[in-house]
């Protein structure tokens, strides 16, 4: 079993898959972190930006759609990750493991 683990780890196709997976993980995490902490920093340093109404005839401020947008963004990012990971990544991983298991027989 340990030998199989090592061959999976060293497998070029597995490593390529992991690079794709890592890129996606860090990209999505960065988007979420930058958005969230950007939101917090605007509140800390320039709250008047969020206080501006969207138009002359409305009381709805910029902060409302931006806030709701961040919640929707969080959901969209998780949706993207689950779609890729439960589809492409899992299938490829299973193929690699199967191939290396067969090789060892």
């Amino acid at each position: 079993m340990n030998d199989l683990y090592q061959r999976i780890f060293a497998d070029p196709e597995f490593q390529a898959l992991q690079r794709r997976r890592s890129r996606l993980i860090w990209m999505l995490s960065t988007i979420m972190l930058v958005t969230y902490f950007g939101f917090i920093l605007v509140i800390a340093f320039a709250p008047e930006f969020f206080a501006a109404p969207l138009g002359a005839d409305t009381v709805i401020t910029r902060g409302i759609p931006i806030g709701v947008g961040i919640i929707l963004l969080g959901l969209a990012l998780t949706g993207i990750y689950v779609h890729r990971a439960n589809g492409e990544f899992d299938t490829t991983t299973a193929d690699i493991v199967q191939r290396l298991r067969d090789d060892s027989r």
Binding site: I25, L28, S29, M32, L33, T35, Y36, F39, I43, F50, T61, G63, I64, G67, V68, I70, I71, G74, L77, T78, Y81, V82, A85
Partner: peptide
């Protein structure tokens, strides 16, 4: 008012990170 929404966003934003980094 709006401060409640700020709290909600903080409560939500951790979940995508739990998914990307930890869950599986």
């Amino acid at each position: 008012g709006y401060d409640g929404l700020i709290y909600s966003i903080g409560g939500l934003a951790g979940w995508p990170l739990v998914l990307f980094l930890l869950a599986e």
